[in-house]
């Protein structure tokens, strides 16, 4: 079972190319999960105990907005990382994540992984080098959306 999970981990873009022993360290904290359409993978305010390597299906990140109900602020799909709040800070989820269709993930136990990272700084640094770029690209994409490009942008008027 661990071996099969290790392969899934090593095959996911987040960990692709890392040495096999690193993938196995991650796999030791991971298991397969499946979600039905509309099921919540994570819930706003809940402890950020695990994150998901998305394998199939798409997920919507939602924030509740009084008067508007739920607002989808981002969608994620296969090969992407769902969940960053497990790394630092309050370790609580900031959004809901809802399955838009049947979703399959490799769920990774955050506490288990962070314990291994603390014990093995080489592994910890390798982990950071994979997660940090995801955070950076999400931040940059968010900044672009802050511009409200299509709302008042100069396009073909």
């Amino acid at each position: 079972m661990i071996e099969a999970i290790a392969e899934l981990v090593a095959d996911h873009p987040l960990f692709r190319g890392l040495p096999a022993d690193v993938a196995e360290l991650v796999a030791g904290c991971a298991r397969n999960e499946a979600f039905a359409t509309d099921e919540l993978l994570i819930a706003e305010g809940a402890p950020a105990e695990k994150f998901h390597l998305l394998r199939r299906g798409r997920v919507a990140l939602e924030i509740r907005k009084p008067g508007s109900g739920q607002l989808v602020v981002e969608t994620l799909g296969p090969d992407e990382l769902l969940g960053l709040s497990w790394l630092f800070g309050s370790k609580r989820w900031h959004t809901d994540a809802r399955a838009l269709e049947p979703v399959g993930t490799v769920a990774v136990d955050a506490e288990c992984l962070l314990r291994k990272a603390e014990a093995d700084p080489v592994f910890g640094y390798a982990l950071m080098k994979r997660v940090a770029p995801v955070m950076l690209s999400r931040l940059q994409a968010t900044r672009l959306r802050l511009l409200d490009l299509y709302g008042h942008g100069a396009d073909n008027s």
Binding site: E62, S68, G69, V72, T75, R145
Partner: peptide, 14 residues
């Protein structure tokens, strides 16, 4: 799209 109400089956993001 930049943001959407649930029910939108496309993508949300830049």
């Amino acid at each position: 799209v930049d943001a959407a109400a649930p029910g939108w089956r496309g993508e949300v993001g830049i």
